[in-house]
Amino acid sequence: MARLWHKFGPVLTVVIAIFVMWYAGSIALNSAWAHDKAQRAGKVLTTSELVADTMSQKKPRLPAPHQVGAEIWKTTGAMVLRGRAFSKRSLFYHSWITLSSTALGFLMGTALGVALAVGIVYNRTMDMSVMPWVIASQTIPILAIAPMIIVVLNAVGISGLLPKAVISMYLSFFPVVVGMVKGLRSPDHMQLDQMKTWSASGQQEFWRLRLPSSMPYFFTSMKIAMAASLVGAIVGELPTGAVAGLGARLLGGSYYGQTIQIWSALIMAAALAACLVGFIGILQRRVLKRMGMA
């Protein structure tokens, strides 16, 4: 019991504190509207009436957690029960749209990142000319060009998944390049010399030494890349005009002041991020264990 408390107690406390603050915040932020409404009706609110009202408004400034929870249930679980899990009102549908472009962008970004890293490690010219630009590309707030990528690719007839995936790719290749360059260079002189004494070819050195020893770096950077790729997919959905996807739910909610909808999309995005990163974490533990590295 004490050990369990030691492990989960602090986190639990923090999470509970967050919920308490959330409720307090929603009372504080929504009370102005509640008072306003009561005044127009010519009533004076008691404290309990006030609290009840702040937690049941239709368009609150800050919806209470249970309102968001109810909205999420209404758009996920309840729809599944009615057998309409993938109707356009279901959050599963929107998450799926976002997830598919996140995954495609992530795969493309990872592939590009690994290819660039191999080039950079094996080609001195590439190392010296491309690497500085890879780093510089990240100091540029690239998300800013998301609308342009979408519109331009639309104009040449490419629409749907790919433009969003391109944005995700751009955001996710960088952590992979940096991590893989570090990883592929992580074998030390002793190990490289050992490969030489076994008269290993360049190919063998890559497949048997450099690639395996880069795996811990690879997984760590994939986690970052996955999170970045989700952000890219969400932002990529904004300029298409709130059609489908979690980003579109955010934008639609902000157009119509549907705060509960925004928050439920936000929580869904957070859950998606947690699942994706968690999945890579599990993969990491499995693979590294089989390779005898963890």
Binding site: V11, V14, V15, I18, R61, L143, K223, A227, L230, V231, I234, V235, L246, G247, L250, L251, G253, S254, G257, T259, I262, W263, A265, L266, A269, A270, A273, A274, V277
Partner: peptide, 19 residues
């Protein structure tokens, strides 16, 4: 919790904060 939040798409808070 901080590590978890750092991995979330926080940019999604933008519409709320604009409101």
């Amino acid at each position: 919790v901080g590590n978890f939040v750092a991995a979330l798409p926080i940019i999604g808070m933008a519409p709320i904060l604009v409101m």
